[in-house]
């Protein structure tokens, strides 16, 4: 893809707080629901079965929203890779790169929202760090960025010390509000409310804008702060947004827990004239049906509160890809 073509976004990890995995009981429930639905149908080829799944089985039954923690790739068309966060999804991403393009001679640019464990835990299993010809640049606004990665690799937490990693690994400290050019993208960070602070990133190229804003609580009564986020999300083609809690939770028992809701995401996107809102950092307690219901409700809310512009609502799942 030439670098002037549109951006694509690929989700490798979409779960909040801790990775989750589906149980046998859940898989069994999905299979039973599908088989009952398929009764009497002549699904005698893989193609017929695939098209039946696609057209006639609910997404929450035929798919899963996935279980890896935060990791999102911005596909720019250049040979350098651009990522947000290194949660457990980074392990799958690293394996994919190895399989498709071999183990060495790659450059990765990674933008870190913050260094909570669910956002760095994929790094020790991100295989490109063990190949000397790879170059990994980790960008972030936290003073303790490098230290957090080093500590995760130190005894007794992990058998291989950071000093033993063979790739060239650099840490690049960014200043929020300043515009940087990385891998052909212009990128700007913004401070967000979260325990220990987190930062959102706004990526832009040739009029296409992707905002990655996770692990952020929005204080709705602070009008200046809200306006700041409206500007940060302004005219974005895609806003990837932490919607871990319901609004009622986020404004009551889980106030100050550092996460937001589908509702606040929608309101910010509506005011910012963003085109798409992607629900992200899913609550680990939520199963596929619950996330599918959250998506349906958010779409309904968008419908009843729509002004003159529509916001398309998506719910991220591991493996999802969006072309902008």
């Amino acid at each position: 893809m030439p670098p002037d073509a549109g951006l694509r976004v690929r989700f490798w990890g979409t779960r909040g707080s801790i990775p989750v995995s589906m149980t046998s009981a859940e898989i069994r429930r999905k299979l039973i629901a599908t088989l009952v639905r398929a009764a009497g149908r002549a699904l005698d080829t893989p193609e017929k079965a695939a098209s039946f799944l696609e057209r006639e089985v609910d997404f929450a039954v035929s798919h899963t929203f996935g279980g890896n923690s935060s990791c999102v790739q911005i596909v720019t068309g250049s040979t350098d890779y651009v990522l947000c966060d290194l949660g457990s999804g980074a392990r799958v991403f690293g394996n994919d790169v190895l399989a498709a393009r071999g183990s060495g001679d790659h450059t990765f640019h990674v933008f870190m929202s913050h260094v909570h464990w669910d956002h760095i835990m994929g790094f020790p299993f991100f295989l490109p760090i063990y190949t000397p010809t790879n170059h990994i640049r980790i960008y972030g606004c936290h003073a303790e960025l490098e230290d957090a990665f080093r500590r995760q690799h130190a005894a007794p937490f992990f058998p291989v010390d950071f000093a033993g990693l063979s790739a060239r690994i650099e840490f690049v400290r960014l200043e929020p509000g300043r515009e940087y050019e990385v891998a052909g993208l212009s990128v700007k960070a913004k401070l967000q409310h979260h325990s220990g602070d987190s930062y959102g990133y706004r990526f832009q190229r040739a009029g296409r804008v992707v905002v990655y804003s996770t692990d952020a609580e929005h204080k709705q009564d602070d009008l200046a702060e809200v306006q700041g986020f409206v500007e940060f999300f302004r005219d974005a083609d895609l806003v990837i947004f932490d919607s871990q809690y319901s609004l009622a939770e986020a404004t009551s028992i889980k106030e100050d827990w550092g996460h937001s809701s589908n509702i606040v995401g929608l309101e910010l996107c509506q005011r910012a004239h963003a085109k798409r809102l992607c629900l992200y950092h899913h609550e680990p307690l939520s199963d596929d049906h619950k996330i599918a219901a959250l998506l349906a409700e958010t779409r309904r809310l968008e419908e009843i509160t729509r002004g003159d512009r529509r916001v398309e609502i998506l719910a991220a799942y591991d493996g999802m890809e969006i072309a902008l």
Partner: peptide, 15 residues
Amino acid sequence: PDVKEIFDITRFTMV
């Protein structure tokens, strides 16, 4: 009706 739906979707009917 629309406001009732907003209350349901935000879970405010529960609190």
